[in-house]
Simulated assay, not measured.
Amino acid sequence: MSTSLADWKGVPEPTVQLLEGRFIRLEKLDPARHGDDLFEGLHGPNADPKLWDYLPYGPFPERAAFDAWLNNHAQNSDPYFFSVVDRASGQVQGFISLMSIVPAQGRIEIGHVTFGASMQRSPKSTEAVYLLAKYAFELGYRRLEWKCNSGNSRSKYAAERLGFSFEGVFRQHMVVKGQNRDTAWYSIIDTEWPAIGAGFEAWLAESNQTGSGQVKSLAQCRA
Rank of each mutant, 00 (worst) to 15 (best):
A117E: 13
H112Q: 10
E109Y: 02
S125C: 14
K134I: 00
F137I: 12
F115E: 01
E138R: 13
R143Q: 14
V129D: 06
S122I: 02
A104R: 15
M119C: 12
E127A: 07
E109A: 13
M119N: 03
K124C: 07
Q120K: 10
A133P: 05
G140A: 04
S122Y: 09
L131Q: 02
K147H: 14
W146R: 09
G111C: 05
R142Q: 13
A133I: 08
E127W: 05
Q105M: 14
N149A: 13
I108G: 04
I108M: 04
L132G: 01
G116W: 07
A128Y: 02
N149W: 07
Q105R: 14
N149K: 03
W146E: 12
K147C: 04
S150W: 13
A117K: 15
T114S: 10
T114H: 01
L132V: 02
L132N: 01
V113S: 02
W146A: 11
Y141K: 10
Q120C: 01
P103Q: 12
L131R: 01
Y141E: 04
W146G: 10
F115P: 10
I110K: 05
T114R: 05
L131W: 07
E138L: 11
L139Y: 12
A136M: 03
L131K: 01
V129M: 09
N149T: 08
M119L: 14
A117L: 14
S125M: 11
T114E: 05
F137R: 12
V129N: 11
I110L: 12
R107V: 15
A136S: 15
R143I: 08
P123C: 04
Y135P: 03
H112S: 15
L132M: 04
L132D: 00
F115H: 12
E127N: 08
V113Y: 00
S118M: 00
F115D: 02
